[in-house]
Design a binder for these strands. Structure first.
Lengths: 151, 151
DNA sequence: ATGACTGCAAACTCTTTGCACAACA
DNA sequence: TGTTGTGCAAAGAGTTTGCAGTCAT
């Protein structure tokens, strides 16, 4: 866990570097995403930040998350089902996503496959990040499938 | 490229195994996705199939794509921007996605990282597939950024 | 014959956009 | 003071749902 003051300082620096303004909305959204170990949807970020800043709006959340992503501070993950989720850019890791309930968990992963990165370069891309998602059924959903309609 | 007759036969077999009915919509959607080397959105599949079956509808396309995915015949890819895309389940490969224009290209990739798979199992998941997406700017978008507003 | 599948229309969720006010620099 | 950023409302894209008629089995 990183101290709030430190988070704010990092963000302030990056914002100024890019010619962006430092606002309480940006500080709070950044804190909210980085404080959580989980992945948060935009709605969840809104809920978290609303406690401290009740007037904040969802479009601002989205705009801020996009900015933080551009600054390289957070990462966006899409499993293809349900809403996008956002997380702080910690150590590289993969995700496991449940096909049935959509649950997402972190999974330790060594690093990005160098062959895939090179392949992207060969295709003319300038890769700046990669995401690996493992799909399957989580424990709970497998149990539920074995005993359908427990009632 | 696989012959249409062979595609139809494989699908027919799988449908019967699962107690599903064999319909022309299903055969045509399957052919459309497998015939293309590209990734297709639901709209693009609709456009392709509409030539042969003008009455087919988008909800049927979605339902059919979901069924084909459940049968393990096709795969769904989500980059988090724009529509979902679908592709036939060919040899394992990764994708490169352009952050700016959303273009997706195939990238050869050896296999799924075994450590990530094991990590998913450790988390209680029963993994059945994985997808690796490399994000970055494609060649065209990099060129466009270097010469903004060519006019 | 009968139950699954389809097509239509509409609803729904998530995300983005346009514009007037507020607030950082 | 001059923009950039925010909040509101509304629109937009993509996907899903409900239902009546159709078709595979």
């Amino acid at each position: 866990m990183i101290a709030t003051a430190e988070l704010d300082q990092v963000l302030t620096e990056r914002l100024r570097q890019g010619g962006h303004r430092v606002t309480s909305q940006r500080l709070l959204v950044h804190r909210a995403v980085c404080a959580e170990q989980r992945h948060l949807t935009a709605e969840q970020v809104l809920a978290g930040v609303s406690e401290a800043l009740p007037s904040i709006s969802l479009p601002t959340i989205y705009a801020t998350l996009e900015l933080l992503e551009d600054l390289g501070l957070i990462r966006r993950v899409s499993t293809g089902a349900g809403a996008l989720v956002f997380e702080s850019r910690r150590t590289p890791h993969a995700h496991a996503a449940c096909r049935h309930c959509g649950r997402i968990v972190d999974v330790p992963a060594p690093s990005i496959d160098p062959q895939a990165l090179q392949g992207a370069r060969d295709a003319g891309f300038a890769p700046d990040e990669a995401q690996l998602i493992v799909f399957g059924l989580c424990e709970d959903c497998r149990a539920a499938e074995r005993q359908p309609v427990a009632a």
